[in-house]
């Protein structure tokens, strides 16, 4: 899920919630009024029926069109959930008349993840490339040994893994986001200190 999608999700959910609160509040007040006997009139009274028969038949076309619009918006909302920020396919390093050089984003991500895993503090790592051809970014998910010093992990990232990647891409800056989770190491991989 991309950041844009989660932003859209928040607004969409807020809107749907607002609509449901208004409808629910209306129904509740109506029901409460009916229960206390102050109002026994039906919701669909003469005025409402008159409005619909007066506006017939175009009002039904309008209702159908609105329903279709809501359904299409719902479908679009469903499909954007599959949208991702990460780069699929290839990252273009250069393009000139004498030829283009591309590197597979998956291959690059695998290499960076394998590089991160060389640290003894890291149990497993996974990487994704994001951003554009001109501004590649890397997202790391690192599972670290909870007993290992966390400084070792950040030292490994900042002095080994990320410089390697900057060197490979020949860029001064490759923004990186690392999400680190701590887990107990399996007995065979436990660090002895």
């Amino acid at each position: 899920m991309s950041r844009k999608t989660s932003h859209g999700n928040r607004w969409g959910l807020a809107l749907v919630g607002l609509v449901l609160i208004v409808l629910g509040g209306g129904a509740l007040s109506r029901g409460a009024a009916a229960a206390w006997g102050s109002s026994g009139t039906p919701i669909v009274d003469g005025d409402v029926r008159g409005f619909f028969t007066g506006a017939s038949p175009w009002i039904w076309w309008l209702v159908a069109a609105l329903s279709l619009l809501v359904a299409l918006l719902g479908l679009r909302w469903l499909f954007v959930q599959a949208r991702r920020d990460t780069t699929r396919g290839s990252l273009r390093l250069e393009r000139s008349p004498s030829g283009a050089t591309e590197v597979s984003a998956d291959g690059m991500a695998r290499a960076v993840a394998a590089d991160v895993e060389t640290s003894p503090a890291v149990l497993s790592a996974d990487a994704d490339l994001a951003g554009t051809h001109n501004r590649p970014e890397v997202r790391l998910r690192v599972v670290a040994d909870e007993t290992a010093p966390i400084g070792e992990l950040s030292r490994h990232l900042s002095t080994v893994a990320l410089p390697h990647m900057r060197d490979a891409l020949e860029r001064d800056r490759v923004p990186a986001v690392a999400r680190v989770s701590l887990e107990p190491a399996p007995a065979s991989q436990r660090m002895v200190r």
Partner: peptide, 30 residues
């Protein structure tokens, strides 16, 4: 890679390589 391959193809076949695309599909080692 481009320089070496273009030179080798020219040397062995006399063909002029006008374009050489390199696609790095995997990175190994680390």
């Amino acid at each position: 890679l481009r320089e070496h391959v273009i030179g080798r193809v020219a040397e062995q076949t006399g063909l002029n390589v006008s374009r050489l695309d390199v696609n790095m599909i995997d990175l190994e080692g680390g």
